[in-house]
Design a protein around this nucleic acid. Sequence first.
DNA 1: TACCCGTGGCA
DNA 2: TTGCCAAGGGT
Length: 352
Amino acid sequence: MTLATQLLAWYYKNGRDLPWRRDKDAYKIWVSEIMLQQTRVEAVRDYYTRWLDRFPTPAALAQASEQEVLTYWQGLGYYSRARHLLAGVREVCAEYGGRVPDNPALIQRLPGVGEYTAGAIASIAYNQVAPAVDGNVLRIFSRLFCLEEDIAKTATKRAVERLVMQHISRQCPGDFNQALMDLGAMICIPRRPRCPLCPLADLCEAYRREVQDMLPVRAPKKAPQLVTLAAGVVQRAGKFLVQQRPATGLLAGMWEFPATEMGAGDVAAAQLREKFRCELQQTVEIEEKILQCRHTFSHRQWDIAFYRCQWLAGDKLREQACWLGKTELGTVPWAGPHHKMALALAERLPNK
DNA sequence: TACCCGTGGCA
DNA sequence: TTGCCAAGGGT
């Protein structure tokens, strides 16, 4: 019995029934792989269904606006994934007649598609023999072969790619790669792996040495930077003043209530008044705090306070800002914690 | 290479 | 509550 034989036998009996495994349409596999980057299966399910309902084909997605696409991605995180997917699909429509190429090297040229995703699409949709080395595969092979190198290093990934190519099923490379995902999610999990249930236990060097809990080796991550913010909620004639974030950087292109970063000793009311006066040419008075929340990103933590503001005077708004009626609050993609604020406002103010 | 880029579940 | 971390890619 080879590694692939044992793994596939286990997979065909125990593999998960997932929405994106219903057919091998390359576009659908592509969408699922992008959504699943650094994101749990349970978080993806509903987004995937809604996405394919609205954008069932590359052509349907290619014609959509970036703002609508971002609205469908809102809450999933890593929003450049959505922008890249849109750009990639437009490229496929323009360059490949709407059909995703089957060559891993060509797939990888698409924006947002790296080595892992290219290998996954090629192997699952087109049955190409290609490795798809993600966090699961790094963990599994670190344990199988007792690799003690940091899995964040490129050299470690290359070594695992070579090992995958030595063991991948030539008949069913896509199933082999997906079986590794399921093994990593169900058996060879990060903490306290369930080795007695593992179909590869008899091949696993870490299990033999009883060091499976020590692997894989991963360099410690940097602590997130703490940021304190004050945001102003201004209402005038039933509409709210909102602002679009810059096209690059954190939460790029998403919408928020105008906010300022607070330095040590800053007073929220003064900072906010300045923000509205200088950047938006609006005169406001800060009233009471209406919501405070903490929002943690992968590398940053926001402590944000929302203040209700009284509008006094102001000029016409520039392009990156606008007045949004309460029925329009659900039509723009919100930046992180601002979504909670927008929802609260929409709920608090019934349509009259 | 190291850093940037979100979110939610879980121990 | 806090820290860890999950089907990565771009720069």
